[in-house]
Amino acid sequence: MTATRDDHKDLIASVRALLTKHADSTAVRAGAAQELGYDPTLWRLLCEQIGVAALAVPEEYEGVGAGLVESLLVVGELGRTLAAVPMLGSAVLGVQAVLLSGAADAAARLLPGVAEGQTTLALCWAGPDGWDTPGITAEGEKLTGTAHYVIDGTGADTLIAVTAAGLYEVAADAAGITRRPSATLDPTRKLSEVTFDAVTARRLGDRDPAELTARLREIAWAAIAAEQVGAARRCLELTVEYTKSRVQFGRAIGSFQALKHRMADMYVLVESAESASVAATAAIAEAAPTASEDIWAARVHCSEAFTTVVAEMTQLHGGIAITWEHDAHLFFKRAHADAQLFGTPRRPLVPTS
């Protein structure tokens, strides 16, 4: 199914309306304090009322049959609230990993539950030095090692292990699995360490591991870019609202020319970041020849834009922005955490004359 532009607008409006009602700052903070790192009731509402987990799942596996574009529209809306429901880790990365593997039997077994919102997947990937070298090794059907920075790892029902030999599926409660919460900069997104001690696993498909991993990395970067744009736009909105109400020297501070210029620069950054994100998402969804370049550009620019916008937000809010009660510090932490999540692209060498 190919969604039209109006369909996209309707999807965004539906998700935003639900999040406005059920995922305000108080609710997000309360959800982050739970063991899962999110409110399961919010996830259930998103799945039952809108079907967000089913968007990228093909119809043959009881999904909506939309695609990656629609899934990342939801990721962007979640970025506005910082609600860390299992959209990115399970409904995007987990689903895409299963589909990319080409293992039809695994898709038929795993994806209907994910589409319904009843089960979740977690991608176990990074080694101690990051995502370039997987933390798990495969010897036959046995997995050993530790995956770091696992999104949704604490509550996932099924783990998808990324190894140099390919993808493997294993039940999260299998013998030899140990899951531990990780200390993180961003309190609104829980990450885990998942250790495999000679765990028996099932190989997913037989596709080239290097190509599969590269594709997964591109999807992850496109998803993070979408989240960064949603969060950056919300930071801009909050800053504009604040400068309209904060009075100094008898005038709203937003009327001062110097601050207008700074907010105009924020606006340009958000708009250009959104353009880069949209182009990257479309390119990877359509397998365009320029996909790698588009995703590289989006990864770099969206990270820099979000980091800059949230820094400006913090400064323009003044002292209130560094208090625990204000959300500015949460966006600040998400910006810096997102800039490192799934690794950063290597910048091309500057040619010398």
Results as ranks from 00 to 15, higher is better:
residue 124 C to Y: 04
residue 101 S to D: 06
residue 94 G to W: 08
residue 101 S to W: 05
residue 105 D to T: 04
residue 97 A to K: 05
residue 123 L to T: 15
residue 99 L to M: 13
residue 125 W to T: 09
residue 95 V to Y: 02
residue 92 V to Q: 07
residue 116 E to M: 08
residue 102 G to Q: 06
residue 106 A to D: 06
residue 108 A to M: 11
residue 106 A to I: 05
residue 96 Q to P: 08
residue 121 L to S: 14
residue 98 V to A: 12
residue 101 S to Q: 10
residue 112 P to M: 08
residue 106 A to N: 03
residue 126 A to C: 07
residue 95 V to H: 06
residue 108 A to W: 04
residue 119 T to D: 09
residue 113 G to D: 12
residue 117 G to C: 05
residue 102 G to P: 10
residue 124 C to R: 04
residue 109 R to I: 00
residue 110 L to C: 09
residue 126 A to E: 13
residue 120 T to F: 14
residue 113 G to V: 00
residue 122 A to T: 10
residue 113 G to F: 14
residue 116 E to K: 12
residue 118 Q to G: 10
residue 104 A to M: 07
residue 110 L to R: 05
residue 103 A to Y: 00
residue 95 V to S: 08
residue 99 L to F: 01
residue 93 L to D: 06
residue 107 A to G: 08
residue 104 A to N: 03
residue 115 A to F: 10
residue 111 L to H: 02
residue 111 L to K: 01
residue 106 A to L: 07
residue 113 G to E: 10
residue 94 G to F: 12
residue 125 W to F: 09
residue 119 T to G: 00
residue 120 T to W: 10
residue 97 A to G: 07
residue 104 A to T: 15
residue 94 G to H: 07
residue 92 V to F: 06
residue 109 R to T: 12
residue 117 G to T: 05
residue 124 C to L: 14
residue 94 G to Q: 08
residue 100 L to N: 10
residue 93 L to V: 14
residue 114 V to A: 05
residue 106 A to E: 08
residue 123 L to D: 07
residue 118 Q to P: 00
residue 97 A to N: 01
residue 102 G to E: 01
residue 108 A to V: 10
residue 124 C to K: 03
residue 97 A to M: 12
residue 93 L to N: 15
residue 100 L to F: 03
residue 116 E to R: 12
residue 96 Q to D: 12
residue 92 V to K: 01
residue 119 T to Q: 12
residue 114 V to S: 07
residue 126 A to W: 05
residue 123 L to V: 15
residue 105 D to Q: 13
residue 119 T to C: 06
residue 122 A to K: 12
residue 115 A to T: 09
residue 93 L to M: 15
residue 125 W to V: 08
residue 104 A to K: 10
residue 108 A to P: 04
residue 105 D to S: 09
residue 126 A to N: 07
residue 126 A to R: 06
residue 116 E to V: 02
residue 121 L to E: 09
residue 118 Q to D: 13
residue 103 A to I: 01
residue 113 G to H: 12
residue 105 D to A: 13
residue 116 E to W: 04
